[in-house]
Nucleic acid binder design. Structure first.
Lengths: 340, 340
DNA sequence: TTGAAAGCGTTACCAG
DNA sequence: CTGGTAACGCTTTCAA
């Protein structure tokens, strides 16, 4: 087995000082003579020495490692969340250990590994979080922060947008712009965010006395496109569609224009959720709900800080206000139009 | 300071056995009596114990940690590469430590942190890798694998597509489909991949006797859109455009259709590079070069395995064959058309 | 099969 | 200011 990294003892030997002296040289505010420091730094430079955090982890019971659990990176919303998270964690002295899971039971499998690295906390950006994984992490006393998944509000801390309110705003907007037969493209039933968006939208539509047809789109572009075609196979062709995320909304727009030969927004209004970059591309110009990722990350980090000194974060829900971004895909006069 | 994780000593105490017995219980193939194993597992379960890898790192000089350095996650190509990498690393027993850098000097800043966690290797998916960072990692004897950046072929291992060949194929294709005045939207000069694509394209166009106008697009959608408008301000309005990545190509298509009122592919052919998901969306249907991310990740992992036992990977370039994906954005008869 | 003990690379504490 | 030493949690070796 090759020894790759030099140790403080190696440096001490070369510099002709004690190992303690090397340690002190790298500890700010420790008392080392200029002479010793010089010798140590010279030796360290020669050997390519950097102090190791590993023994510190044993001593302090703090690794400064945070597990970041991600699932569907196909959704650009999650890439931007990930990027923001990593940048913020680094800036505050944490190191993200990235964990990718395809499906939920795979998460259970990696929990022991995370534990073996003694992570200080787990941040999950999974749409879905199984009861089992939560229980496992609880037993290991690892604080868990759920991003965009509120189903475990009583056991973990969750940070998410106000999905219900946002979906209600979308329903209001579509109806105000003249829609009278709504279509909803749902995500995955396992996703609490998706369920909340569906609930808010259908509730508000009900209050407004407007019917809603529902098709599942699985949060993907192709799913949204297929769901849209199915919506138009039914008896009630919608004149306003809300997709539970932007990817599906973009698929819906393409289905309407390319597969069905309809115009957006002239024939059908379309709105999405997330405000991913492609939502603002000229070909789509999609009305959507902005999820304030930086703000959500901020909140998650606030929780992380407080959880760092506890064995578990205090359960609860943190809800970030959403913003409706109105673009061309719903750009019609506000005055209700006459519908056949 | 709270002690979050139980130790083998805690378990031993509760189980009424020695700490060695606990260790052996978790080491496959060690000799423990059924009775002891039972007591240990019961105690471990009660305390939520998982063996720690931290002391092992000290003993073996191997952390099984791999630093994954990422930059522009705005490009979906990198999210999919990241996802593939993380999945593969995990499957093979490594843990990715994620590092995000905004600009290159920021990388220099995190190198000491990576070293302090005793990472076994660094995989950089940065378009740009500074000379300084490479030198720093060399001095620390950390093997480096550069993904999609070949400028340091003599110092590190790089894995990339055959950018030159791919760009030549694109030039051939555009000209075969009738383009006679080419436009090239370049990425960033600092990116070796971008430079290679530009070199291959202009070289082949030269051989074919077709002029090329160049505008920089910075690898972003907006940049590609603006670059396209600039191409048409010049004296030579192109009838075929190659963008050094898909994001810029999509911006180009929107510029052509929305800003300039031209048709794609009827008036102008457009091709990109990467084959990101949105390239195949109906609104764009973009001809592009597929970078075989899974294959590239495979190659990188092969290098990682061999580098794991060395203090440095043997420098060299690994080049993965690209595939031209022909879609609607260049869909014109193969026979050369007459151009004014 | 079992327990005791050394050692990994640090930091903190102590005596000099 | 300096060097020696204990301690962290684990694996491995050795003796019982």
């Amino acid at each position: 087995m090759i020894k790759r990294y030099a140790s403080s003892t190696d440096v001490a030997r070369l510099a002709g000082v004690s190992q303690s002296a090397v340690s002190r040289t790298y500890r700010p505010g420790a008392s080392v003579s200029e002479e010793t420091r010089r010798k140590v730094l010279a030796a360290a430079d020669e050997l390519g020495y950097r102090p190791s955090r590993i023994p510190q982890i044993m001593l302090t019971h703090r690794s400064h490692l945070v597990a970041l659990v991600i699932g569907g990176m196909y959704n650009p919303f999650y890439s931007s969340v990930l990027e923001a998270f990593v940048a913020r964690l680094q800036a505050e002295g944490w190191q993200p250990l990235l964990v990718h899971v395809d499906n939920d039971c795979a998460f259970d499998d990696v929990v022991p590994t995370l534990a073996s690295y003694r992570v200080d906390a787990v941040v999950s950006a999974l749409a879905i979080l199984s009861d089992d994984s939560v229980r496992q992490l609880e037993q290991l006393r690892i604080p868990v922060i759920a991003f965009n998944a509120s189903s475990f509000g009583d056991r973990v801390v969750s940070v998410s947008s106000d999905n219900v309110l946002a979906a209600r705003l979308v329903a209001d907007h579509l109806v105000a712009r003249g829609a009278r037969r709504l279509g909803l493209i749902a995500g995955l039933v396992e996703s609490s965010a998706g369920r909340e968006r569906q609930a808010g939208f259908t509730a508000r539509a009900g209050e407004l006395g407007v019917p809603v047809a529902i098709q599942a789109g699985g949060f993907r572009y192709e799913g949204g496109r297929a769901a849209t075609r199915r919506l138009f196979e039914g008896p009630m062709a919608p004149d306003g569609i809300f997709a539970a995320n932007d990817l599906m909304a973009l698929g819906a727009i393409d289905a309407l224009r390319v597969d069905l030969g309809l115009r957006v927004p002239d024939d059908v209004l379309v709105a999405g959720f997330d405000d991913i970059p492609s939502a603002s591309w000229a070909a789509y110009d999609l009305t959507t709900v902005l999820q304030d990722a930086p703000r959500m990350v901020d909140e998650a980090l606030r929780v992380l800080h407080s959880a760092a000194e506890l064995t578990t974060a205090r359960p609860g829900r943190i809800v970030v206000p959403p913003v409706l971004i109105i673009r061309g895909s719903t750009d019609r006069p506000v005055a209700p139009v006459q519908v056949a």
